[in-house]
Write a protein that binds this DNA or RNA. Structure first.
Lengths: 191, 191
DNA sequence: TAATTGCTTCAAAAGATTCTGAAAGTTCCG
DNA sequence: CGGAACTTTCAGAATCTTTTGAAGCAATTA
């Protein structure tokens, strides 16, 4: 098949190119979001290319499509695999590995929320509570007012962190977004 | 008053020091959270010191407490002011400027959500929708299946982004966390 | 088993971000 | 004014992150 009729080939090639271009745009948008969330931009880009392409791609093709080195591809793919958002597969009689995107987007997001955001918040809550406790021991006389204000404020930070934790927990556990139980924390009350 | 009785001074000094230490710990925790959220760590630390201390501090003192240069203090304070989380004030007959923390924590958080997270998501949603539209124009014959799968997937990204947007909008607008209206987006449906 | 192909690792380069400190700029006072 | 006290700015230093590309490893084939 040396040459297909120009009338059909040329338009198709243009479309193909536009498609690539378009995938890139989406990939960059996802990359930006991921970066914003504290991941590496390239993780988002790579996942998106796999996700939108829809079929397994080899490392070499990913390098080409994303303009990254083989090393970067290998490391990024390892990261994505660790986060469970990309799977490896092989084709019979082909020595190369292929990669596919996890397609359950919510599953991905909730995993990240659980393993990253939640543990981060947890850590902070612990520090807040511990600090509050320690402050309350041995309050210097005549400093009660000052110290108790400080304790209150730490408590407010802890409250806020707990609200975040509650939100995330609800989102993550129920696998459906149903957040009614989270209403309590209003605001207004400043100090 | 050359020297207070040791019995009361020494314990107090220890307590003072412990208090500093403690504020530092909390400040570092907040700094870590802020960094996680894409701000500079030092912004979180500085705000926290002001917030917990409770009264206006001068730039020099902040430099000392945080172990940063005057330049860093100046820039960080400018940032914090831009975000509306620190206010300048002056004391009569004192040429220096003093700084106070905004104490309405929710106000701060919601402002950030509104100005940063929301606009970030907005941008992504637009790109997703635009890409989807463009893909649908001039689908190459015999590619309908592939293209429509791609379109679907972009739509799912857009949906997810919209859920995020909805959540944030609800949190931000109501100034009370009441998220019942956000239930719709369930999951399960993969493709 | 040797040769080939593809993957991973990692030291070093490139790039990005954050911090410093001194110079320039302001403000206030005598 | 002139100068002291304080603040801002910004070029360069320091630090942190990401990427490269070549060396080494592992799997497969002839």
């Amino acid at each position: 098949m040396p040459d297909a009729p120009a009338a059909s080939t040329l338009p198709e090639m243009a479309t193909r190119e536009e498609e690539r271009e378009l995938i890139h745009e989406v990939a960059d948008a996802v990359g930006a979001l991921m970066e914003f969330w504290g991941f590496k931009r390239v993780m988002g880009r790579l996942w998106t290319v796999l996700y939108l392409t829809g079929e397994p791609l080899g490392a070499a093709e990913l390098c080409e499509r994303l303009a990254i080195s083989s090393g970067a591809a290998s490391m990024t793919l390892a990261d994505l695999e660790r986060w469970g958002v990309v799977k490896r597969s092989r084709k019979a009689g082909d020595r190369r590995e292929y990669f596919e995107a996890e397609t359950d987007v919510w599953k991905m997001v909730s995993r990240v929320l659980r393993e990253r955001e939640l543990s981060q918040i947890e850590r902070a809550v612990e520090i807040f509570d511990r600090a509050r406790e320690r402050l309350l021991r041995a309050v210097p006389p005549g400093e009660q007012a000052r110290i108790s204000r400080m304790v209150d404020r730490i408590a407010r930070l802890a409250d806020l962190a707990r609200v975040g934790r509650g939100l995330l927990t609800a989102m993550v556990q129920q696998h459906k977004v149903d957040l009614a139980p989270l209403v309590r924390f209003t605001t207004g009350r400043r100090r």
